[in-house]
Design a protein around this nucleic acid. Sequence first.
DNA 1: CCGTGTCTGATTGTCAACAATCGATTCTGG
DNA 2: CCAGAATCGATTGTTGACAATCAGACACGG
Lengths: 230, 230
Amino acid sequence: MTKAPAKPRALKPVVRQSTAAMIADSVRGALERGDLPPGSQLGEADLAKQLGVSRGPLREGLQRLTQEGLLLSIRNRGLFVIEMTPDRVRDMYVARQAVERAAAEQIHLLDAPEQAGAELMEITDAMTVTAEAEDATGVGEADIAFHDLLVRLAGSTRLSLMHRTLLTETRMGIHALDPTYEGNDSRAAEHRAIAQSFIDHDPATTDRLLQLHMADAVERLVPGDGAPED
Amino acid sequence: MTKAPAKPRALKPVVRQSTAAMIADSVRGALERGDLPPGSQLGEADLAKQLGVSRGPLREGLQRLTQEGLLLSIRNRGLFVIEMTPDRVRDMYVARQAVERAAAEQIHLLDAPEQAGAELMEITDAMTVTAEAEDATGVGEADIAFHDLLVRLAGSTRLSLMHRTLLTETRMGIHALDPTYEGNDSRAAEHRAIAQSFIDHDPATTDRLLQLHMADAVERLVPGDGAPED
DNA sequence: CCGTGTCTGATTGTCAACAATCGATTCTGG
DNA sequence: CCAGAATCGATTGTTGACAATCAGACACGG
């Protein structure tokens, strides 16, 4: 599509997504932004009204998030946002390590992992600019975008699906435990080194750096006697 | 509870599980048994009647399986069982490797990984008996039970949740691609070696053996030019 | 014969009403 | 005063009815 738009009014894409999926995405966004605090109950009537749907489709959408483990359903009591306990956050990082290290391995199996490295490097560059502007939230979001891209570049549907849940939970954890989750120059440097390791075709370094990076992230978010080395 | 039952009619446990969860589990079982072939459409009216529920809760339950990626929802067209293509099965094994290797690492971090090894060894012993009886389905099921226990022993809620989906998909793949997925002595020996590596406190060997074992499983289920080494 | 339009039956999607459940509050009796 | 029972309001869980959509079949015109 190198031409200018032929018409100012493009055809409108038809709705293919189910209402339940749309609702799930919308509520996911609220979870990620911290609009629905951990432990809080989701009232169906109120939420359905806000979203402009009836309770049936809302329940369907929330079943999706329940299955993902982001909501807790208690029969006859209702749906609750999960508590972001330190143990839960640590467990979530265990799962993130599993997924991201596997994704990295798959990228190294591609014909040109250096391309992936270059794409990741662009995010790192943007992260550096953001860090110099002392925009901690921006760095945090770039951090997450880096990991999101990393897994997407692996081209694995399964890993991507699992990772989406884990990134949602990451954002929830940040809001719950450390809203001032800081970004600084060292963050960008770590990411740059990971991206470089793809350019260098060096899977062992990628793996090592990812482990260190994630262990550091956990330690900063949930410090204490739950260190992964225990 | 070392006493004999005080009453012949025990109290009935209250239902804590939501109807949607029960329905999801029931349909999951049907998927795992191959009762619902890949690509087939799930008709709501018929299925609700079979399960003795109305369509509302059925839809809720099926949203769970849809979110897991086991069903495909097409708006206004209905729900379909996913196709078990060779690429999909390979991708699923990528994800399984990620989860199971991470689980193995967590087990090695426990105080007594040799206990885990002993528990896994029991399944291996049962697998050997089953293989000698030339019960291929039994070996296949013991194979899956081994991997299920492996991940459960890691004590990670997240890994276990992800793994449940992957094992469902594994069973679906076996039904679709190779209903005669064979078990024999070499299967038991591979599992025994993995179990032994926990007893030996040897994480590097566990990791290596898991990779080999999974690569072999993929190759047997979807042979050809999609070899993981490509 | 082929392409387009219309109709039909089956299925999905949504809604409002009612049933069921629960926690909090109030009442009652010892 | 305290414990147990009853009540109440809010919320969740389910159902049946109706609306919306789609694929397939059929009719019609060029």
